[in-house]
Amino acid sequence: MALYIDIHTHRAEPDGIAIRNVRIESSVPQLPATGYFSAGIHPWDASRAQPEWERCFETPSPRLLAIGETGLDFRPEYRPYDLQERWFERQIDVSNRLRKPLIIHNVHATDALLKRLQVRAQEAAVLHNFIGSPELVAQSLSRVLHLRFSFGPGTFRSPRTQQALRYIAERCPDRLFLETDDDPTTTIGEMYAQTSQLLGWELSALQESLVHNFHLLFPKISLG
């Protein structure tokens, strides 16, 4: 089967399979009426998050595929960092308990983030909207073996991130995903088209590869 998979998006995606992001900001988050989704407490909300916000994980929907986005963002405007770390650890524990992968937000916090994944996480983790170099990919995988990397529209504005995408496609293609994130205009079809051109792959080969990766990450989910 050849189709498009958007591993992380903030909007409805008509072309293929999409995992929509739900940012938990209350004890009764607004879940999409149809389709797959992820849900988590974003590091931007850590300073005001409450334990009851995790109620949606007590009896989770079968359409909940992943926990997140969660993670760490060490820019000054998102202090205090210790609260971010605490809520990130709680979300890792939810991931372990529900046996669902993590969707990870990471800004200026790579070492702290990898350290927590290394010692605490039992399930796979997707570094969403990855921006970085091939060297960072290799260093990250040397510390956390079950990482995946998802590339968004910003990839094509960053030469080193394009090099990282090529590195993954050549060295560990089973770790690769694509996404639209919160970009209001780029479609997942356009992401596939630009990526296949960058890699020199046939579009159908890229589609088949990412379907394979989806099945590795979500072995119990049938794409029909």
Rank of each mutant, 00 (worst) to 15 (best):
residue 2 A to G: 15
residue 2 A to P: 15
residue 5 I to L: 13
residue 10 H to L: 10
residue 11 R to N: 05
residue 13 E to N: 12
residue 17 I to P: 00
residue 17 I to A: 00
residue 18 A to L: 03
residue 21 N to K: 00
residue 22 V to I: 11
residue 24 I to W: 00
residue 24 I to S: 00
residue 25 E to S: 12
residue 27 S to Q: 09
residue 31 L to F: 05
residue 32 P to E: 05
residue 35 G to Y: 01
residue 36 Y to A: 00
residue 37 F to T: 10
residue 38 S to W: 01
residue 40 G to M: 00
residue 40 G to A: 10
residue 51 P to Q: 05
residue 56 C to F: 05
residue 56 C to N: 11
residue 61 S to L: 04
residue 64 L to P: 05
residue 64 L to Q: 07
residue 65 L to P: 02
residue 70 T to A: 03
residue 70 T to D: 00
residue 74 F to W: 13
residue 75 R to T: 13
residue 76 P to R: 07
residue 76 P to Y: 03
residue 76 P to Q: 01
residue 80 P to R: 04
residue 87 W to L: 07
residue 89 E to G: 06
residue 92 I to Q: 09
residue 96 N to C: 05
residue 99 R to H: 12
residue 100 K to M: 14
residue 101 P to H: 14
residue 103 I to Y: 02
residue 105 H to N: 10
residue 106 N to H: 10
residue 106 N to V: 11
residue 112 A to T: 03
residue 112 A to H: 02
residue 115 K to A: 14
residue 116 R to F: 04
residue 119 V to F: 13
residue 122 Q to S: 10
residue 124 A to K: 02
residue 127 L to N: 02
residue 133 S to K: 02
residue 134 P to N: 04
residue 134 P to G: 08
residue 139 Q to E: 08
residue 139 Q to K: 09
residue 139 Q to V: 08
residue 144 V to H: 03
residue 147 L to D: 03
residue 150 S to G: 14
residue 150 S to K: 10
residue 154 G to L: 15
residue 154 G to A: 15
residue 155 T to W: 08
residue 158 S to G: 11
residue 158 S to E: 05
residue 160 R to D: 12
residue 168 I to W: 06
residue 170 E to Y: 10
residue 171 R to V: 14
residue 173 P to K: 06
residue 176 L to E: 04
residue 177 F to P: 02
residue 177 F to N: 06
residue 177 F to C: 02
residue 178 L to I: 08
residue 179 E to M: 10
residue 179 E to P: 02
residue 180 T to S: 15
residue 187 T to E: 05
residue 190 E to D: 14
residue 190 E to K: 10
residue 193 A to D: 11
residue 197 Q to I: 11
residue 197 Q to E: 11
residue 200 G to L: 13
residue 200 G to P: 06
residue 206 L to F: 12
residue 212 H to W: 11
residue 215 H to R: 13
residue 223 L to Q: 08
